[in-house]
Amino acid sequence: MNPSVRTVFNQNFTEEKYADFLVDLNAGLDKPVEFRVAETPVFLTDDFRDKLVQAGQEIIDVVTAPGFKELSERAIPDKWRVANENDHPHFIALDFGVCKDEAGNIVPKLIEMQGFPSLYGFQLHLAETYRHTFNVPGNQTIFFNQLSKSSYIDLLKETILGPYQPDEVVLMDVNAPEQKTAVDFYLTERYIGTPIISLADLIQEGDQLFYHNADGEKKRIRRIYNRLIFDEIESDQNIFDKVVDIRQPLDVEWITHPNWFYRISKYTIPFLKGNYVPQTQFVNKLATIPDDLHNYVLKPLFSFAGQGVIIDVMDDDIEKLPDPENWILQQKVDYVPVVESPDGGVKVEIRLLYLWPDGHNKPTLAINLARLSRGKMIGVRYNKDFDWVGGTVAFMHK
């Protein structure tokens, strides 16, 4: 991490400034931020930024190669397979831990991946608030590929709206206003104009979908900016008796199609190789159980936000799995507490966020998300009792 920018930031940091930052962050929002936001951004060195970009590109090369859809076909659970899948995901998120390799070098290591949207709206707002409150230097940016705020928003619009008007594209989640990420939904609406609806708001007529806008008018839906994860409705066996069954063939475009959530996921990691990918195997394909299980984590394929992960793995954890084909065993990575806080180092995870509009030959690395942790796991739900942890963003030299 960048030592010079970090030193200046820490010297000028006060709890009062952080309190002001939180006030500014929530000012004017439809709903306050419901997860912990860290006291500081991350400041990347040029060397680590370049390693991150390279690590991401090596993975992008795999998921964009011919034959990837065939390779990932088994990733999609039959009951959640949605009709009319397109040829590529519109969003790709790659999570990297800041780690040490065997030679002791600071390197990124892949932790998770998703063919699903992330906080594309909130991260922009978050970075601007950090910059304003803490006077982040003007030569620092959160964007990749020479993007600016305006060109980033243009790319976001091109990806989500495509050829349609904002009111023809809806941001949809199972119960959108109640999601912890609802702040991102409302900021996205502010930036690009997409109305926010819940699954139950969908109206079906034939194979077309409609919704009622704020004025009560019924409007045709051309595209769904999908934020719904099927895990969230799996417990309700009769969900599609009460709402539109979105798995059926419908005359609507998906941004991004729900099947990509499974194709680009933990399922994909065993097929990846390279210096930035920890050794990962499907449990049902293990020849033998490793003797050093303490160096591995056990992860369910079909879960999100770190749920179900077994960090301290025992032999019987593997042996008693009822569905070993739906689990991976992944070599632990050595997170390095590289962010200097007032009372010690803090661990970091950085998510690279790509946008892939229709008509583009490849995805564009656009922006990032970062998370700070002192606990065994990175997610904000696992760091509730600490400070200098939580959601943040990484700045780097322009």
Rank of each mutant, 00 (worst) to 15 (best):
I153E: 02
T392V: 00
I111G: 03
F395L: 00
D334R: 10
S373L: 01
A19F: 13
D241R: 14
Y335I: 06
V277T: 06
S72N: 12
N213S: 07
A65R: 13
D101T: 02
M377C: 11
Y18D: 07
D316W: 13
D46H: 11
F35V: 15
N86M: 12
G216A: 05
F230V: 08
R6I: 07
N135S: 14
N84I: 03
K69A: 13
K17S: 11
V169R: 07
Y191V: 02
C99R: 04
Q331V: 05
P342R: 05
P342H: 10
L321E: 05
K285T: 06
W260Q: 00
E189K: 15
H90T: 00
N226V: 02
I255M: 11
A182V: 05
Y152M: 11
D167W: 06
V283W: 13
D24K: 14
Y267I: 04
S4T: 15
L147A: 11
Q248E: 12
S341G: 14
P249M: 00
G138T: 10
E253R: 07
T45F: 06
V393H: 10
Q57F: 02
G115P: 02
I153H: 01
I153V: 15
D387C: 05
Y225R: 10
T7V: 08
L171R: 09
D30R: 12
I350H: 06
R351L: 12
P258E: 04
S118T: 10
L228S: 11
F134R: 01
E70Y: 09
D167R: 08
H125K: 01
K51W: 03
N26C: 12
N2R: 04
A200W: 04
S150V: 04
N86S: 15
P290M: 00
I160S: 00
T280V: 07
D20R: 14
T141N: 02
I367F: 13
Q204Y: 10
D154W: 09
K266A: 01
F395W: 12
K31G: 05
V62K: 15
V5P: 05
E85D: 07
G274P: 09
A55C: 05
V309R: 01
L286T: 06
R223F: 01
F302D: 14
Y164V: 09
D78M: 05
E58I: 03
D231P: 03
G28Q: 01
V98L: 02
Y18E: 04
D291G: 11
R381P: 00
E158P: 08
T256Q: 07
H132D: 12
L22A: 04
P337S: 07
R351A: 12
V33C: 02
Q165F: 00
D207R: 08
P32K: 09
D291N: 14
I192Q: 09
I60W: 08
N259I: 02
M396F: 15
N2M: 01
M113K: 07
I221W: 02
G375S: 15
A305M: 08
